[in-house]
Design a protein around this nucleic acid. Structure first.
Length: 216
DNA sequence: TGCCAGGCCGGGT
DNA sequence: ACCCGGCATGGC
């Protein structure tokens, strides 16, 4: 539908006007973003910050150092929840990153985004949102990150069907927005910000919801 | 005080 | 092809 592009940009504008720039991803380095992307799976960011703090305080926020000290990971990341599970996922990612790229971000800059995405998805514990978060926020690739809020908002406002899967929703954004890393960055962050709105389901008839004026 | 966070996997139907 | 339980901590 031709109007989808305008609608998506209207929504973006409204969210930006309401909330302003979100300055994502909070983190001092690409590697911190990668680790954070795994730790934040179904987890409040506040808890992830504590885990990242622990890793920093132990001076282990770099691929090789963290891998060599992997026995310490469970204790370090405990505040982020699911810590046994996430320890395995983190180690699986570290092995991939070190064995294939020596833990150097320079070594994957020449890789095509699609190929990189496939490699990330092949790692057990890294699904589409985690992979895309790494691609967008650590590697600055123009990849739209879809999360539960995104699905909820689009679904509630009838822009997608209730049964749309991740790739379909992502394609909807890619097809209707300019191929722009910064736009994707801010847009996803704003949707997450919207998700923290007290109207958790983004009900179309919630008058205090920032999107109310667009759809009503 | 329960509910729920910036998911993903594996097993059962 | 879906559906569901499990995974765990800390904040409001």
């Amino acid at each position: 539908m031709a109007g989808d592009s305008e609608l998506l940009m209207d929504i973006y504008q409204k969210l930006f006007d309401t909330y302003g720039s979100q300055h994502w991803w909070p983190g001092d380095s690409p590697f911190e973003v990668m680790v954070g992307a795994i730790l934040t799976q179904n987890t409040n960011w506040q808890n992830v910050e504590k885990a990242l703090r622990n890793i920093k305080d132990a001076d282990l926020l770099e691929p090789m150092a963290l891998f060599k000290n992997r026995v310490k990971i469970p204790e370090l990341i405990k505040p982020s929840g699911f810590y046994r599970l996430k320890t395995e996922r983190l180690i699986a990612f570290l092995k991939y990153y070190i064995e294939k790229y020596q833990g150097e971000i320079e070594n994957l800059k020449h890789k095509k985004t699609e190929d990189l995405r496939g490699e990330l998805l092949a790692i057990s514990g890294i699904g589409p949102e985690t992979a895309d978060s790494i691609l967008l926020y650590a590697l600055n690739r123009p990849v739209f990150v879809v999360d539960t809020y995104t699905r909820r908002v689009l679904s509630r406002h009838k822009m997608i069907g209730n049964n749309a899967n991740y790739d379909e929703i992502q394609k909807f954004f890619h097809d209707n927005l300019p191929d722009n890393t910064q736009l994707y960055n801010e847009y996803h962050a704003l949707i997450v910000r919207l998700g923290k709105h007290r109207c958790k389901k983004n009900e179309p008839d919630c008058h205090s919801c920032p999107l109310y004026s667009i759809f009503n």
